[in-house]
Write a protein that binds this DNA or RNA. Sequence first.
RNA 1: GCCCCCGUAGCCCAAUCGGCAGAGGCAGCCCACUUAAAAUGGGUUCAGUGCGGGUUCGAGUCCCGCCGGGGGCACCA
Length: 981
Amino acid sequence: MSERIPQHRYTAELAGQIERRWQERWEAEDTFASANPAGPWASPDDPRLADGRDHRVVMDMFPYPSGAGMHVGHPLGYVSTDVYARYLRTAGTNVMYAMGFDAFGLPAEHYAVQTGQHPRVTTEAAMATYRRQMRMIGLSHEPRRTFATIDPDYVRWTQWIFQRIYDAWYDPDAPPREGSGQAGPGRARPISDLVGQFSAGERPTPDGRPWAELSRVERARVLDGYRLAYVSAAPVNWCPGLGTVLANEEVTADGKSERGDFPVFKRNLSQWMMRITAYADRLTDDLDRLDWPERVRLMQRNWIGRSTGAEVDFPVATVAGDAAQIEVFTTRPDTVFGATFMVVAPEHPVVDQIVPDAWPEGTQEAWKGTGEARATPREAVQAYQREAATKSDVERQKETVEGSAKSGVFTGAYATNPVTGAPVPVFVADYVLMGYGTGAIMAVPGQDQRDWDFATAFGLPVVRTVQPTPDHPEDQAFTGEGVAINSANDQVSLDGLGVAEAKERIIAWLEQTGRGRSTVTYRLRDWLFSRQRYWGEPFPVVWDEDGVAHPVPDDQLPVTLPDVPDYTPRTFDPQDAASEPEAPLARAEEWVETTMDLGDGRGPVPVRRETNTMPNWAGSCWYYLRYLDPDNTRVPVDPAVEEYWIGPRRETVPGAPEGAVDPGGVDLYVGGVEHAVLHLLYARFWHKVLFDLGHVTSEEPFRRLINQGMIEAYVYRDERGFPVPAAEVEEHPSADGGAPAYTWNGAPVTQEQGKMGKSLKNVVTPDDMVDQYGADTFRVYEMSMGPLEQYRPWETRAVVGSQRFLQRLWRNVVDEDTGAVTVVDEELTPELSKALHRTIDAVGTDYAALRTNTAIARMIELNNLLTKLDAVPRAAVEPLVQMVGPVAPHLAAELWERLGHEDLTYTPFPQADPAQLVEDAVTAVVQVKGKVRDRLEVPADIAEADLEALALGSEKVQRFIDGAPVRKVIVRAPSLVNIVV
RNA sequence: GCCCCCGUAGCCCAAUCGGCAGAGGCAGCCCACUUAAAAUGGGUUCAGUGCGGGUUCGAGUCCCGCCGGGGGCACCA
């Protein structure tokens, strides 16, 4: 059987030999090393650094290495960036292309729990598998730049950056750094600047005492209120099932953990936070300067949720008789004349101050609540508060969103509408959330459906203050645009104004009279930064005997994880809301209790180490910076190196606003859309802090982002609905050309498309594909399946098409029987020459635009032309081999060498001759009333009038005109004429 | 409920500015090579662009309304 196959055919075996040979050679020769302008590996004489030469940083989101290794879906983005990087090298660009590992995290910890092995052991093993697979498919990463987030050297700098964040505060009045594209003031500054302001008396202390009179502990408390990394005892997301607290971004809309899908409860716990809210404006504004998919920018904008409006003060009398105010936030201050009642969140502190001992005269029964306790306002309100406290946010929402019935209780107090002077009843209701705005609203049933529902349920009055459209239903709030009505008092009138003008006028009046102010709120909350896990970066922080936090001095970093016998996390019954987090590190007592010289003149003192660890996101917040300068022992990245690679560019990205300043950042970042608001938001935040503090020159980490699609696979299910092994399913074409039928073991099965996974029995690995077809074929197939962004199903059956292409290319150069090179040194025919140059032109454009699928189609086309020739001219096949280089690098390198050349990696991409791209003659289409009726061969530079005359002279055309008067002739020389009769 | 993306041959996908619906691949069918099959090579069939309107000389492309698939947000004041 196999002896029939020609000895030198490009089979999987031969491909494998070629691939291994080139992989070894590339590694031995450091082929992919980039040229460095500065830092430990500086090579200033490298020609790639010459003036005018471009540079690009190309990278993928680094993987979290799972024990199972990669399936064929994982390398899609990697192969794309590799093709792009390889193309750029041939285009004369200095390319930085590296890959590391995101190696802290829960799965390794879970796996370690099951197997009893240390997470480091299993993680290292998984990384070895990934490295082998990435090398096997020919990725041209620069080996010397690789690292994992668990490497002590990397942890050291992650902790170092934490210290800088801890040692900084956000000064909203500070001018931005020179040259930044920031619109308004605001910048992080070292905490020492703040201490300077306090001690100089420029900034008052909270209680007004001079700074010098504050104790050590008091000063620390004051500063903690400003730091960008701080400990707070706020309500946090506690997940007993995982045994840790979680960031808002890690909790799904229905109150479950994103990982594991466990219930999450709000608990008041003391935790590390990052003051990301200080950057809310810049994180929103700077999205405009990035070349990112619109939907990702939209998701970030939604997550940050900037909303402009006004705060309005509603006077209220406390039970003690004092004049107080309830401050509300509204985006519709123009509707304040229609505010007929108020609602405050059950947790709102004002409630205790205003609830009277007895119901006011004439209080409606329905306002007193539904429970037993309704004799006095105090009892009713407390009962309602208790009930609300036992419910999670999600439960609160469920009852009311789905049922649309709103619960609530009258507080017994009345406030005063500041524009009408009318008394308005104050309710507590859980549809108002303490965590958003001021935790209190003015209710305007006329213009807000939620308020309308509440007003209807409690028999409250409705005043429309915006004229609804004529067809608007009588029984609904009107939330649209319209002119203001019923909106005037003695001093100000909004009547007749549109919404925007009305807002402006009423805010001006409120500010003038001290009743309110224009304001901005955000949905974004500070980032909860500590986790009760073992497998993460330890905080470089110790606590002294007074409970004051101290950073571990830089020269003592990294703080490494203690080796403990019991590193498993304490998890609980997922429903056990009352459980307490228990950090695994707290059990390493010898590590926790230590002494340290804190540098404050006291000498070594007893301290307790912080026992929480950083979240998995910490390591991925800055790894792209470390690629730039991985061996630097002085700083995370040399500023000159950073500026060269990712500093702001002179030109802005496409679509950036007029006059914008380029933010810099990685030139191409490819990864899944699932990180749209987690990793990508956190990394942007850290980067901006580093920018403010002067450690980097770029304002953004990732200048251009592409979300690669997912490779899915067919899932076949038997009649019971269970998946059957996809590889064993047989296809049976239908007789009439319709959809085919599928069977497994003779029994019919159904086909659907789904994720690739063990449980669906449809996993295909790169290892299988490289064995069966070779790495180059695998790469070509992945790239020819469609555009990078698209989701598409894997079909192993179709891979053979890519193999045939490479086999034909091989055969166009090498004799399958003898192995001899068969190309001839003949002139190209004019037709072939034109085809070649058109292909060069198109393929170069496609590669540069990451349209690898169409580039491959063009190369197949040219290759098929060559296949038909008796002898293949060298001048045609050599450029083709060069063009194939980015997608099938091993095969191209081999053929290039056999054709008598050196390594292809830096050989300049072929140039298309512009003269060969112009056509002498083209086919002009002649349409009559939009239908094609004739085709004419005409010179490419034909004049419109000549083409028109030629078209009208056509016999076929005249037949279709059929003597009717010609009304109009549209000429698009040289390709089209449309005659309208 | 609101917002975003996508629907082109049996399948994966092409189609600059609105200008001949088809570049490439898979599958199918036919032929060559073969004792035969596989592999390989050559040839070839197949859709009028999810549906309904509109704009236009001309619509896969632009606009409106549906249908189907995917995703995001959701008492956010």
